[in-house]
Structure formats: C-alpha cells, structure tokens
Design a protein around this nucleic acid. Structure first.
Lengths: 189, 189
DNA sequence: CCAACGCTACACCCAGCGGTATAGTTACAA
DNA sequence: TTGTAACTATACCGCTGGGTGTAGCGTTGG
C-alpha cells in the first residue's frame, strides 16, 4: 500500500470494506469512488480496472491476515503444540473484528469466475495457511504433520463458515476443541 | 416440481445447473431462458421473478440433498454411531457427482444480500442438518449429542470448502477420520 | 519557470441486466 | 364451439454496470 498515492489508498480501503461487507459483484466502481470521495477517473488511473482492484483488495487482506496470524502465534509462548491451538485464537479475534461475513477468500472463490486472477490469490492464501500449519505441526513433533495440518485447515474453514452462516454459536471454540483432541492423540507417548 | 408445467421444469433444471456452475449473480434470466429453449415470457409466467426462481432453485436442491442423505444413511446398517460416519459417505458421493463448486447454500449466502429470501432457505438447510446430526448422535448415545453434532457440522462445512477450493485431496475422508475420533471418544465406556 | 503529476468535475458510451407488452399459435377441455 | 392455458416470437423499457475522454486546477521538483 506504500507505493500508492493518498487517493489510491483511500480507494483501496473503501473498496476493501465494501467488497467484503456487500460482496464483490454487488459493489460497483461508481459506489466505491463516491464513498471514497474520489472520482471514477482517479480510481481507474490508480488501478486500471475493477478486476485489478479486486486483486489488490485480496492481496492486501491476505497480507493483513498472514501478519496478524503470525504475530498472534509468535506472541503465544508455550509448547509448540499449543501454537497450533493459538491459530484458533487468532481466528477468533479476526472473526470478531472484521470477519462477520466469513472468509473473504472463500467468498471471492464463490463470486469470481474460474479464470479470474483473484482466485489464484485465494488459493495461494489457503496453500500458505496449510504450509504454515504443517510447519507448526512439525515443530510440535506430531506423527503426521501434513495430515494434522490438513485436518486443522478443515476445522478452520468449517468454523469460519458455520460462524458466518450463524449455524451455531462459538463455532471457533468448538473447532479448537476438536483440534486439541487431534493434537493430543497424535503426540507420541 | 410436480405442480410445474413442462416448460417450467425445463427452466428450473437449467437454472439450477447454471446457478450452481457459474454462480447466481453471474447468470442472467436471458441465458437461462435461451439454454432452456424457452422464452423469457414463459420463465416469468412460471416463476414471477429471478428472485423467486432463485428460491425455487435452492428449495429444490435442498430437497434433493436431504433425501439423498437420509436414503444413504438409512441404507447403511450398523450401529448408530456409524450412521454419523455414513453422512460423510453421502457427502463424498454428492461431492463427486454434483458438488464440484462447493455447497450451493454456502455459495448462495455469499452471493445474496442479507434480506434475500434465498438466504433463509440456506439457513434452514443448515439448521436441518444440524438437527439431523443431533438425532443420530442421540441415537448413538454419545455424551453430548448437540455438541458432537455441531462439531460434525463444522467438519462437513470444512470438508466441502477445502474440497471445492482444492486446498487438499481427500478432504471428505480426512473430515470423516476426525469425526471417527470424536465419536470414539464421546462413547461411554 | 515550467512540466509532470495527482487530482476534480462532468459528460459520455455501450452492453447487459431484470422485467414488460403485444400478438399469435397449439392443444385440450367444457 | 368456444375458451383458456401454455407456449413462441419479438420488440421494447429504464437502469446500472464497467470504462473512456476532455478540460482544468493545484502542488511539487528539476
């Protein structure tokens, strides 16, 4: 976001909020420009097209979530196994603050066509998370780090969806409890 | 679907396919009518509006999934605890055949605005599934049927999302394995 | 000093959207 | 026989979408 002009920053912030809150397809460039207090011309001068703005939005959110997660996990001292559980703490916090409409990357994958570059950003985000979890699992010396990481990712996704659809309360807590069981079982001894 | 005219059936079938494959917002009524080999007039005579057609689509798919799931579970003899695991078998089958783009109800919740009647159908679908799982859990005499049902629902959602985003292979199998662990643990003795 | 940049204001384009209206055809039932 | 339900064909409507073009203004830096 540093290489952007002030108006560009304002556009990206506004677009991020609107895309997430109302959905990507439901928000027009007109609305973004207006709400950002900026001309459509400026928006197009900075981002070129709505598609590029979408990609910028997803990338920005990806970066924010990654740094939030890593910071949260690193700030959580204790045995490595607990770091995996800490990812649910990060998810819980994230969910409460800016995740009322579920995971932005899942949503983007639903809204965007197969060949849209934004979908690659979404897939990368998930691949990164899976690899990150596997790293934590390896540190924790569990039997099958890759397998556990996959299971934990499923729990993350499920909690996120169940939460945003209001299928139940405390979805993240429940997912974390399941993860705790899995970790306990896969620890040697 | 019985009270519909032949053309109405064709429209609903076509709309269901296109809505699911390309997304609800991405498909116009024009395209639906054309692909169904029907006039726009006919479409509107039968369904009134695109919104109503969306609701009809979701209801139809809901009914199909419910009957598929129940049939699969009932056709699966064995102890009640295994019936819970059988829901993953149904999900696996469903996923392979007509679920390549994930759960239609999650997708609808992402695509539709907050006050759209289609979202209620989606929420009902999840509420029904949760209740159904809780019934199976109660039959299986687990400690906390409601808690287990919620955890299993999270696993279903997570598997569905992880599968459609291609975050990993065999997502449903992995989710089922987790469920097996949970059931084993929550069985008395 | 002047050019380049970032920006505003505003007008415009075209395609596609959801939805409607009119007129006519077929088939079947009272 | 007459009416009605189901359907086709086609033209149309207003709105909004993404995107462009032109002109002008203020700031900044070589």
């Amino acid at each position: 976001m540093q290489h952007l002009t002030p108006a560009g920053v304002k556009v990206l912030q506004t677009a991020s909020r609107l895309f997430y809150e109302r959905g990507i397809r439901a928000v027009g460039v007109e609305a973004i420009a207006e709400e950002a207090g900026v001309t459509k011309k400026t928006l197009y001068d900075r981002f070129g097209s709505k598609d590029d703005l979408i990609v910028a939005y997803l990338r920005a959110r990806d970066g924010l979530w990654r740094s939030t997660l890593v910071k949260y996990v690193n700030g959580h001292d204790g045995p490595p196994a607990e770091k995996i559980l800490a990812t649910f703490g990060a998810l819980r916090e994230w969910t409460r603050e800016r995740n009322l409409r579920g995971c932005a990357f899942i949503n983007a994958s639903v809204e965007l066509p197969e060949d849209h570059p934004g979908r690659e950003v979404a897939r990368d985000q998930k691949a990164w998370l899976l690899a990150y979890l596997e790293g934590l699992a390896a540190q924790a010396r569990v039997e099958d780090p890759a397998g556990l990481a996959a299971q934990v990712l499923i729990l993350h996704e499920g909690a996120c969806v169940a939460d945003s659809m209001r299928s139940m309360d405390r979805a993240v807590d429940r997912a974390e409890q399941v993860a705790a069981v899995l970790i306990e079982r896969s620890l040697p001894g």
